[in-house]
């Protein structure tokens, strides 16, 4: 097995091309991320939960 070496995350994740994403896909991913934050905050029993991420998302939508 041969290992590959890269000098950045961007180089390693070549598929990170913003233009390839459609409006529906980006919206779906946003909702997916909100779900992710909500789930992890709910399950974060060992540490003090933070909902900073979700509040930040709501503020950005209103201010744009």
């Amino acid at each position: 097995m041969k290992i590959e070496v890269y000098t950045s995350v961007e180089e390693m994740k070549l598929s990170m091309v913003e233009d390839s994403i459609s409006p529906v896909e980006s919206l779906m991913q946003c909702l997916n991320l909100l779900d992710f934050y909500a789930t992890l905050n709910k399950n974060n029993k060992l540490e003090k939960a933070t909902n900073e991420g979700i509040e930040w998302i709501e503020l950005k939508f209103k201010s744009e």
Binding site: E18, P23, L33, I57, K60
Partner: peptide, 21 residues
Amino acid sequence: SCNDLLKTKRLLQEKLIRLTL
């Protein structure tokens, strides 16, 4: 940790919101 994992997703979150808007 769960808190640090949440931090790592912040940039992805910002990028997705920019794209959506």
